[in-house]
Every structure is written in C-alpha cells, then in structure tokens.
Amino acid sequence: PGTGGVIGSFVPPKSVWLHAMKGKGLEISGTFTRRSGAVFMDLNFTNRALQVMSDFAIQFNRNSFGLAPAAPLQILTPLAPNQSTEVSLPLNTVGSVMKMDPLNNLQVAIKNNIDVFYFSVVYTLHILFMEDGKMERQMFLATWKDIPNENEAQFQIRECPPNSDAVSNKLQASNVFTVARRTVDGQDMLYQSIKLTNGIWVLAELRMQPGSPSCAYVELCLKCRAPEVSPFVSQAFEAILKN
C-alpha cells in the first residue's frame, strides 16, 4: 500500500473444481498462488447439503513436479448447511513424481464425513518459478549456445502490455527475470531466465515492437533442456501478461 506501481505476482481467479452435484453437496472452488517463495492452494469449501460436514482431509496423486500438501487441511469446525469456509493449503514440491498428461495436471482426493471425492485440476506453471531464477549473464550466453536448436520453441502472445518495461516488470513480479535487453532494427528484445522448482532452467527471448498499441503481440522463443515444459511455460507467460 502506498507504493503505487508495485505489481504483485499473478493469481488466477478461483474456479469450481468440485461441483456440489458430484460432491454429495460439497462444492469446492480454488486456485494456486505463489507467495513469499511458497506455493499455496487457496480453496473455498461450501456445504450445499442438508447435513453438517466434518473430518476433512486432502491427498494428491503423484504428479509431474512432486506437488504435495505441506500440512494437513485445516478446517477445524464442522461446516453447517449453506456455510462456506476459506482455506489456504501450503504445498511443497518434494512429493512423488510421475509424469502427467498434460504435464500440469493434478489429481486430488478430498474426504469428509460423507464420502471421498476425486477431481483433476490444471495449474499455471508460474507457481513453480523460483525467486532465485535470475541466471548470471555469462551463464545465460553459454547455456543459450549450448541448448540445441531442436529444443527451441516459438510462441505468439497477443494483447500484451504496450512496452518492454511494462512487460519486464509484470513478468519479474512472477519470477521471470530479465537478464539483458537490446533494441535491434526498432524491435525490443528481452533475454530472460526462469528456474523451476525441480531445477530445470528455461531461457526466453521476447521480441516486441515498442510503441505499438496494447493489442500488439510479442514473439516468445523458449529454450530448455526439457522442451516438453515449453508449451506450459508459454501458457504461464500468456496468463501473466494478459492479467
């Protein structure tokens, strides 16, 4: 407050993950966030049944990045009919790993005194972007050269902020760090780095025409030794920049 202009990291709006019809009256909406270096699953539980709900617990299936609850689900008082409660569940990334399809899929089981319910959610990969993801410049150049061209993926992102400062600031708030910037033939080029929680580095080149209206697009090129993550990193760029 009072600092104006400071941008927070991207938080997608909550969506319904478990409909009351499928949850015997339990409705769950949620989103994923990254705050102060930690991942959270922010949840809203609503009891749309005619009986009290209690004894809540949560479990994840194995997943691509080892996401797991870092604490038990804390819903301390029973949930009366028509009552809602908000919970922020801290997560860690030291759980069992199994490659999911899509890569960012997470299978969740929630239990209460009535039954056990299962649902799948997808998360935006930015929750895995680490705070120490700014690669040293010399390392960036060497890594860029070292990663083969086959591991390079191109994407277009439309409706971005109107200039490279705004783009860079917005991305940095979600741990996408600008390592260098150049202007060539009237185009702004940003060289950026990201470190995922599992230690994978992603290098990015963003190219944009300065002074274009905000409906302009940027060309995103990603280089990574694990190129299967690139489409999901591109989705995260898109979500951050359009937010």
Binding site: R137, Q138, L141, W144, A180, R182, V184, M189, Y191
Partner: peptide, 20 residues
C-alpha cells in the same frame, strides 16, 4: 564502466537473431 565483453556478446546475440 567495466567492459567484460558480455554487453557486446548480448548485442551480437540479438543482432544474429534479428538478422540471421
């Protein structure tokens, strides 16, 4: 400003990507 050659290297990279 100390020139460690990295500024120039980034300029060459950007140039080569724009005009391959």
């Amino acid at each position: 400003e100390l020139d460690d050659g990295l500024d120039e290297a980034f300029s060459r990279l950007a140039e080569s990507r724009t005009n391959p």
